[in-house]
């Protein structure tokens, strides 16, 4: 489990999906500040926009959920590893428990996220603001992010886990 193995074709596909999500969230991260600065300056001049507030919030939500693939890959999600440090022999079993719990949780996030987006879509719910954004669009960030969590964790289980906090691209 802990030794790094050569990725198979299947794993490569999963990794590619993870990279796509990572790419999207990183691009959003780079541009996120721009509309906020634009809005702040316009407001200072007396012309506030009505779209920045909401769209940047949704962009942030996408960064948060889609960034999961990256966060898993970099071991950024915080774990308490005290037992594994005290009993190094238990580490493989604990890693397995941890990974399986993440998979289960990812399934919960994906299924409930799909349900939520479907609920917004089938009831044609939009935000009660001047922008009237159909809510299923930002809702979709949840199942997609859950999918990233799932896929990248499977990759991790196949190829070994990064050390906590280790940076590797």
């Amino acid at each position: 489990m802990s030794s790094v193995q050569e990725p198979t074709g299947f794993v490569r596909t999963l990794e590619a999906a993870g990279k796509l999500m990572t790419g999207l969230s990183v691009v959003l991260m780079i541009v996120l500040a721009l509309p906020i600065v634009y809005d702040a300056l316009l407001r200072a001049l007396g012309y506030p926009t009505i779209w920045v507030f909401e769209t940047t919030l949704y962009a942030f939500i996408f960064i948060g959920f889609l960034g999961n693939a990256l966060a898993v890959k970099r071991g950024a999600h915080f774990r308490v590893t005290i037992i594994a440090q005290l009993f190094p022999r238990a580490k493989p079993a604990l890693d397995m428990i941890s990974n399986v719990s993440v998979l289960l949780f990812a399934l919960l996030v994906i299924s409930s996220g799909i349900y939520f987006a479907w609920y917004s879509w089938s009831n044609t719910i939009s935000s009660s603001t001047l922008l009237e954004v159909p809510l299923w669009i930002p809702n979709l960030a949840i199942p997609i992010g859950g999918l990233g969590l799932l896929l990248q964790t499977i990759v991790q289980m196949c190829c070994g886990m990064p050390e906590h906090g280790e940076a590797g691209d």
Binding site: G46, Y47, F53, T129, L130
Partner: peptide, 18 residues
């Protein structure tokens, strides 16, 4: 405080702020 109030302010020539 709301979308409706925002429309009224817009109609009167002001800029609604959330």
């Amino acid at each position: 405080y709301s979308r409706g109030a925002g429309q009224v302010i817009q109609e009167l020539g002001g800029s609604p702020v959330t």
